[in-house]
């Protein structure tokens, strides 16, 4: 899916827990996430902490969308 969206000309960031899988499906901008059953959350944190964590990840995704890349790039901290 991610590849077809990119192919259509839209910059796309893939937020995915398992980076190698994201690479094999052909994502170019990759933001690693927390865990498979809760990629953008963590049920062990308080509501506020969890949302802050999610915000941090989404902001990283926005940064990825604003960054020129030549090849598959993983955006970590």
């Amino acid at each position: 899916m991610v590849k077809e969206i990119e192919r259509a000309g839209l910059p796309v960031v893939h937020m995915c827990t398992i980076v190698p899988i994201s690479k094999t499906v052909g994502a170019n901008r990759i933001v690693p996430t927390v865990a498979i059953p809760h990629p953008l959350g963590n049920p062990n944190l308080s509501r506020a902490e969890e949302k802050a964590l999610r915000r941090k990840l989404v902001e990283r995704a926005l940064k990825a969308l604003q960054t020129p890349v030549g090849d598959q790039t993983v955006f970590e901290e």
């Binding site: 899916m1 991610v2 969206i5 839209l10 796309v12 937020m15 995915c16 899988i21 994201s22 990629p39």
Partner: peptide, 8 residues
């Protein structure tokens, strides 16, 4: 203009 695609 841009897409965020989330996967598990």
């Amino acid at each position: 203009n841009a897409v965020i695609l989330t996967s598990t």
